[in-house]
Design a protein around this nucleic acid. Structure first.
Lengths: 212, 212
DNA sequence: TCATTTTATTAACAGTGTTAATTATGTTTG
DNA sequence: CAAACATAATTAACACTGTTAATAAAATGA
């Protein structure tokens, strides 16, 4: 039955076209502006057709959410070739920061917004989630290897990794939500000019160095 | 002209009643569910009346945003009585964390959402903002005093303060958005049970201790 | 009391996500 | 081939959202 396969493929095609249209709107105008009706208009279908391919808007956003994690994962993957673990840890920080700055909408969807993670909790309870865990696992492993190489020996791996992630996430989200720039402008009299994101990150690296 | 004063007062009264109704709805059901129409219904006025007292929804939310900063500021204020600066710094971290956990909606409005800070940038450009800066200033001063007491001597004050804030904000927001719990459940096989927020914070304190 | 200003309301616009009922399309069977 | 069926897509509608213009009501000043 080759006809059934072609039908399946056509159906999967449309599902992808919906996602592509959603992605384009999302990256251009953000979450709120990505409405079902606008997606439908872009692919020249009726709005309700979309509900035949995705459960609801959160479902579509979850799909984009996954795309974002794949992208971050691929960028982290490259770093596995950095053999020195502490160098790799620092590089992961830089990559994470670059990812946040270069893909602010994706970052917001992946780490700031509630909707996608609530969709996971509501519909993907059978422990499938892969993409997201992979990045955290990579961090855990790197911290572990750092410890094996004599760094951070007095700290618990998971706790240390969560601290690193928290700091990077806090820094990136404060930057993206405009809080960092706001502090820079209002406290301009006491703070000299400069890129505070970069400066703070360098300060973090210095802190890590001090921890041996 | 006592009549004019009473009128002014009445007008200010209604402005406050609108804010109270908004606050009640906001703390109960969150940002999205706090609609102009629901606020109006609560105070038994027409929806459009609200626009005579607040520019738009962002204006109302900015007012709540300010209330949140006053609350956090008052909690920070108490800590000024802790004379040992490093003890005070650690206590500030705990207070910040407690505030986030006990007032998640406020925290989200103050540090996670874009709307209020964009309202500031759009309408309060004449450098009034006080409430927010106060908290950050308190942190800067405490770090400075820590340095004077021999802690973190090799680090730049502002950079160090931004690192502390970033870490605390990252930790709290990862917790509030459910990412921390998610990692705890999916990685339950490798992580023993426990309160990961608390554990990570303790790890952070340990890190600070290691920096002397 | 009349005119003026202030305050509040109704009606409406332009959207939003989502569902039920209906029509069109394509496939399979008698 | 034509009828029956399953699938896909649509229209219409519901219940909302923030916001504005035009209008009515109330309070104030002369």
């Amino acid at each position: 039955m080759g006809i059934k396969e072609r039908k399946e493929k056509h159906k999967e095609d449309l599902r992808q076209r919906i996602l592509d249209a959603a992605k384009e709107l999302f990256l251009k105008d953000g979450y709120e502006a990505t409405s079902i009706r606008k997606i439908a208009e872009k692919i020249e279908f009726s709005p309700t057709t979309i509900y035949l391919y995705y459960k609801d808007k959160a479902d579509i956003m979850y799909a984009l959410h996954q795309e974002g994690f794949k992208l971050l994962g691929s960028q982290f993957g490259v770093l596995q070739h950095v053999s020195e673990p502490f160098e790799r840890l620092k590089a992961m920080g830089r990559v994470y920061m670059s990812f946040a700055l270069n893909n602010p909408d994706f970052y917001e969807l992946m780490f700031i917004m509630k909707e996608p993670i609530e969709f996971v909790k509501a519909h993907c309870h059978d422990e499938e989630w892969e993409e997201g865990e992979q990045a955290f696992t990579a961090l855990i492993m790197t911290v572990d290897q750092c410890k094996a190489a004599g760094y951070f020996t007095s700290f618990d791996t998971t706790t240390f990794a969560l601290n690193v992630w928290s700091l990077m996430h806090g820094l990136c989200s404060l930057k993206l939500q405009g809080h960092l720039d706001h502090m820079a402008t209002t406290k301009a009299h006491i703070l000299e000019e400069g890129d505070w994101l970069e400066k703070t990150f360098e300060g973090f690296i210095a802190m890590l160095n001090s921890l041996k």
